[in-house]
Write a protein that binds this DNA or RNA. Structure first.
Ligand SMILES: NC(=O)c1ccc[n+]([C@@H]2O[C@H](COP(=O)([O-])OP(=O)(O)OC[C@H]3O[C@@H](n4cnc5c(N)ncnc54)[C@H](O)[C@@H]3O)[C@@H](O)[C@H]2O)c1
Ligand SMILES: NC(=O)c1ccc[n+]([C@@H]2O[C@H](COP(=O)([O-])OP(=O)(O)OC[C@H]3O[C@@H](n4cnc5c(N)ncnc54)[C@H](O)[C@@H]3O)[C@@H](O)[C@H]2O)c1
Lengths: 230, 230
DNA sequence: ATGGGCTTGTGAACGCATTCTCAAACCCGA
DNA sequence: TCGGGTTTGAGAATGCGTTCACAAGCCCAT
């Protein structure tokens, strides 16, 4: 009766709210209105209220939301009341950076295993973790109770890595390789693609440049004088 | 008359199509139907046709699209016919990984400058680039004609970094720091937030776990017998 | 106790994106 | 030259997410 499906767009914003709320507790703010939270998270206040209403009625009319309580509720909804073990597949430039990243564990995500297929790398260490053999992926995943797989192999190896993660019983995958990978329906797959982000920026940058040069040309030829009013 | 605004959602998919098309030329495919391209990019074919129709009528009915020609048109639309210079602000774990990343330049993005505020790092090298002083950001950006700024500083320093990039005349920023940053309207800002991605995965992972345990409980108590048909 | 001022929670309107659908257009073989 | 098979391009329908708008509900001062 109470709850079912939270819209995907809302799920994606809950972490934003959470971050803002945690900032607030650090500044000893006890209560927050949807307006204030909206400002902090960079969205509009109706959105905040609607999003939070999917989780339940945790606000007080005329007052706002209790910061601590809301942190708890959002954390619970996001599954952050427990820790999650992650495995990084492919320990190159990027995999190493992720493995070294503190502030990972800060919200309950623990890098529990690193695997690579390069025999020159296996046995090496990153921080206090050993790089292990990709071939042992299933065993390692089971032993360490890994539930999230992070793929940082070259694109060509990404599908293979995903297949192995799935066969190890992992249902959540974050892919950094610029490749489309297929997983069964019951596996969540998210991707982060830097190159796509840059191309999107480039699209808008070009638009701006084109627009500017039109303006510049107009100014030079004096055609700006042909304005709407004759 | 011909073209105006391409929807944002379409812009975000053009790089995907482009990647698939480039793969195809490498496999010597000359012509592609919307159906095939859709399959390769992991979307539906009506979407492909509608997206491409925003750029113009580049297909041939009964035949499909010419792969080379489509690559050229999409590249042009995305502004990839020219090179773009990027500056990385904050050369730590992540900044260093990005700086070392080849496959960056592969599609016209060149890391042209690295800056950091840590005097211990300034003067050091990453690959063939020197780490320079954050204080000289404006001068460096101008000299190297940087048009894209990449922020990989700690969250607390991200807004400051963005302000300096903006004051250097940069209109496109990619932010990796987990912080909300404000920029003027004429600046494009995109963010990549690993921690948010993990939290989204955690949300669905938890749902799956909850659902599984319900199923397990049902099976044990035999209540699955109370099915829809009596 | 009561009224005034705030803020939530949510129906309703709106807008954007996706998907369905099919006439129009093209190629090719007979 | 013509007709059958194929595929595009775009209008229409649908669905999802955002935003508006306001009644309901809460707190506090009087
Ligand atoms: N480095 C970056 O900044 C960056 C940025 C965006 C995207 N990416 C993408 O992330 C991925 C990794 O990039 P990188 O720069 O770290 O590359 P890299 O070559 O430095 O590292 C890749 C690692 O994967 C390992 N590997 C290869 N095949 C494997 C397999 N089948 N199983 C397990 N491990 C395997 C290699 O041994 C290597 O250690 C690439 O797909 C790249 O396109 C990287
Ligand atoms: N490392 C990762 O894998 C990872 C993953 C996701 C997000 N992030 C985020 O990316 C950012 C960088 O992460 P990191 O692990 O590389 O951190 P890091 O501490 O290794 O590097 C940060 C760098 O920024 C520099 N810096 C600090 N203040 C600066 C300023 N005002 N101007 C210029 N440079 C400044 C520091 O000297 C340091 O070199 C952080 O915000 C982090 O949360 C990192």
């Amino acid at each position: 009766m109470k709850e079912n499906s939270v819209p995907e767009a809302t799920v994606a914003r809950l972490p934003l709210y959470l971050r803002s709320l945690v900032d607030m507790t650090e500044r000893a703010v006890a209560t927050v209105s949807s307006e204030q939270l909206a400002e902090a998270a960079g969205v509009n206040s109706a959105k905040v209220r609607k999003d939070l209403s999917y989780l339940g009625s945790y606000g007080t009319r005329g007052v706002g939301y209790d910061v601590e309580y809301l942190i708890y509720q959002i954390s619970r909804e996001l599954g952050l009341t427990q820790d999650w073990n992650c495995m990084i597949v492919g320990v190159g430039n990027l995999g190493r950076a992720l493995a070294n990243y503190r502030g990972f564990g800060s919200r309950g995500f623990r890098v529990a295993a690193l695997v690579d297929s390069d025999t020159a790398k296996i046995g090496g260490r990153v921080g206090d973790l050993e790089i292990e053999d990709f071939e042992d992926l299933e065993r390692i995943a089971k032993e360490r109770q890994v539930s999230i797989g992070i793929i940082t192999t070259p694109a060509a190896a990404a599908q293979g890595a995903a297949d192995r993660l799935v066969s190890a019983g992992i249902h959540s995958i974050l892919n950094f390789a610029p490749a489309l990978i297929q997983v069964p329906d019951d596996v969540s797959l998210r991707k982060v693609d830097l190159s796509i982000e840059l191309q999107i920026l480039s699209f808008y940058e070009q638009r701006k440049a084109a627009f500017d040069s039109v303006r510049r040309a107009r100014r030079l030829t004096g055609s700006a004088a042909r304005s709407t009013r004759p």
